[in-house]
């Protein structure tokens, strides 16, 4: 009795890595990144949630433009949020890539989905980083009661 076994080396989302293959092992780098970024994100996101929702009196009710203005006056929070943005988007996008590779078997659709994930990641990282560092806590012409208390009264 004979049985035909399909080649286990058919090209797929995760091609088998042979000893002859050269270049960096990107899947291994991704595997390490998910663990390293995951540990850092636990600290960054737990700190983000604890500060904004638990330690700030009023929690979610207290969050408004003035709250963000006061927070971003401190460079620590700017860098905290930018680090969180980059790591969370890259960690989440790589996770979504894994899920798309697992479940989307039609090649054109898989490419579209991976392209959409990469484009979203690029746009949101660029947007969020620019906004964090170009943010103006005291925009001209805004009503004073919406602004942080340190803004000059105009």
């Amino acid at each position: 009795m004979t049985a035909t076994v399909e080649s286990p080396r058919t090209p797929y989302a995760y091609p088998a890595r042979s000893k002859g293959r050269r270049g960096p092992n990107l899947e291994k780098a991704g595997w390490i990144f998910m663990r390293a970024s995951g540990v850092v994100l636990v600290v960054l996101i737990f700190g983000h949630l604890a500060y904004n929702l638990l330690f700030t009196p009023g929690g979610i009710q207290a969050i408004d433009f003035g709250f963000i203005g006061g927070k971003f006056a401190n460079p620590l929070w700017q860098w905290w949020d930018v680090a969180m943005l980059w790591l969370a988007i890259l960690h989440g996008s790589n996770g979504m890539r894994t899920i798309v590779n697992d479940y989307v078997h039609r090649e054109p659709l898989r490419r579209i989905a991976l392209g959409a994930i990469a484009a979203s990641a690029f746009i949101l990282i660029a947007l969020g980083t620019l906004i964090t560092f170009t943010f103006d806590p005291c925009p001209a012409g805004a009503s004073a009661d919406l602004l942080p208390s340190f803004c000059p009264i105009s």
Partner: peptide, 29 residues
């Protein structure tokens, strides 16, 4: 993970409204 990912996309966009105006950010938050 999928749920957090899609919230993250929305959360970066809603926070980005701090660059538009105090009224826009306060309305979305």
């Amino acid at each position: 993970g999928i749920g957090i990912y899609f919230f993250l996309l929305v959360h970066v966009l809603d926070t980005s409204l701090i660059r538009v105006s105090p009224e826009a950010y306060n309305a979305v938050i």
